[in-house]
Design a protein around this nucleic acid. Sequence first.
DNA 1: CTTAGCACTCCACAACCGAGAGTGCTAAGA
DNA 2: TCTTAGCACTCTCGGTTGTGGAGTGCTAAG
Lengths: 343, 343
Amino acid sequence: MLSERHLEVVLAVVYEYIKTGEPIGSRTISKKFLKDRSAATIRNEMADLEEMEYLYQPHTSAGRIPTPKAYRIYVDAIMRRQRSFPADSDGWMRELRARRRDVEEALGYATRLLGKITNYIGVAALGPASETVLQRVEFVRMGNRTVLILLVLKGGLIHHRTVVLPCDMTQDNLDELSRRVSTVALGRQWKDVRGILQAYVEDALERYADSCRAAIAEMDLILTEQPFQFFTGGTRNVLGMPDFSDLGRLQAMMGLLEEDESIGQLVHGCSAEQGLCVTIGDENPVFQMRDCSIVMASATAGGRRAVVGLIGPVRMDYERSISVLEGILGTLSDNNESEEGGL
Amino acid sequence: MLSERHLEVVLAVVYEYIKTGEPIGSRTISKKFLKDRSAATIRNEMADLEEMEYLYQPHTSAGRIPTPKAYRIYVDAIMRRQRSFPADSDGWMRELRARRRDVEEALGYATRLLGKITNYIGVAALGPASETVLQRVEFVRMGNRTVLILLVLKGGLIHHRTVVLPCDMTQDNLDELSRRVSTVALGRQWKDVRGILQAYVEDALERYADSCRAAIAEMDLILTEQPFQFFTGGTRNVLGMPDFSDLGRLQAMMGLLEEDESIGQLVHGCSAEQGLCVTIGDENPVFQMRDCSIVMASATAGGRRAVVGLIGPVRMDYERSISVLEGILGTLSDNNESEEGGL
DNA sequence: CTTAGCACTCCACAACCGAGAGTGCTAAGA
DNA sequence: TCTTAGCACTCTCGGTTGTGGAGTGCTAAG
């Protein structure tokens, strides 16, 4: 449906428009990209493309601007090619590698890095651990009935939460509780043991059955809800973004970045499929983002599923964005094991 | 140096300018605020005030705009009065109270709340615990020489960090280590014990002296560096801020919000003095903030020193900002103990 | 099918103009 | 001496007009 000739024009327009931000005229294309065709010829083709909704004119006698459909074509073309990581950010990458020990910190750093390198907004989400296996359980008495629950998961993830139990327990009681829980649950999948835990614990602590039940319920909550964790970096760069049609929209979008849920939604789409995925403008599920494009990719870091991405204007430097993201992802992810024998 | 008559004019101009954002003319003042003086009289006084640098005109034949000096006078006047908390935010306050158990979460929520209520930017910093007393110490073996250090401080603060020790230790070794550390350090001020810890620990674990030393050094690092923790909320509201003279400046300012250090600097000034403090425009130590005003106050929450504040444009609704902040601070701070017998 | 030529359209930018707001100054009144 | 009315002056803001340039669509010739 789209001839080779037409395709060439679309790609040229998108490429040039990304670079300049100005509407592109037929003359420019003819001179810079397709020297074997005159401006008039290009003009005819452009008219066709406009009919097909790959290009549009803001007004007669202005050049053409690519539509989302055109960006799509462009991005697909890019993805087929091989890219190389921009070399200029070697020092940063070392920094990032140094932080790999702590996944959360690494992801935070990665988003800030993405922001800095690309001038767009870096986002990341850290999914639940691939296996929910307890490595350590502690209950620490903080006040009358206030107890701190401390869970160390295999892989190094730590959860803690303060809860109020229905009845008072001494630290000795709590130690007994954690001993019992440990006996049953350590080194095993949580989902396999939580059912049988209650009975075994009450065996020794029946006087505190209520509190034990509450504690175990809370543990279950912590371990099964396992929400995504989110990171953003370079938020300031929204300001450098397109003359957003409307300031209100921009504000709405920034609002999203503060609310984890909506990022979750974004991530969700991507985390399903493996590899890199680019969402352009209104392809986006979250309507506040319809003026943005998102480049996302998932990886496994520290044994957990992670999604790292970039949010930028639709008129984004996709080529660069993608290669930067790939570079960071490579440094971050587990299969790039190197140095130190840890774990 | 500033007569009563002049003062009245200054206050009126600031008040009106904050409300409208437009330069204020002599006529407006005469009609709305000082009905017993004619516009011409006010005009003369305004000319005086311009000479004294309390007001200035963007151009001849425009009204007057207050200078930072005038804002200062205005804020000082407000601070002497009593304020009442805006009633419309009762539900939110309940929400906030419900989160008081976890200081970190509460502060995070408070900043978002501040952002939402005022449409400025909420910030908060959580200082080091007032007393560094260990309540629990755990070392968990994560890999060959990788060990997770878990510290629970009195008051409920949890620190954890993963480190690589110089030599391999079994979990039993590590348990012995934590037992020994506990014996010496639990319930006592860290600064009193860290000196004697090493000797006592090596007594039993001399084979691993190196690793023990490394672990204790790391603990010391965690406990003594005790960095401030920072929170921000409502960042999106920068967009609603003044037609910032320069977009670059706005961006620079947003950049600050991502870097903890500089917020630390802001906080530092305030945390010294007790109570509420307002910094207007270029009174600010951080030069990127010279277009903003900051309202900050400190309190004690969860046994830790906390500073909560608002960043807004110089033309900020100080009265409302201050009362909102006071309200939130009241709900947050420890002396407002209520409900539940905890701790 | 391609291309040169040409008339046409439309925007961006500058210049211009009038209305309105607010001032400073002056002179008269208390 | 202080206050006030009156008046001429200044400057911005919004709208209008005009011009130059860029880019198009169409047509006719190669």
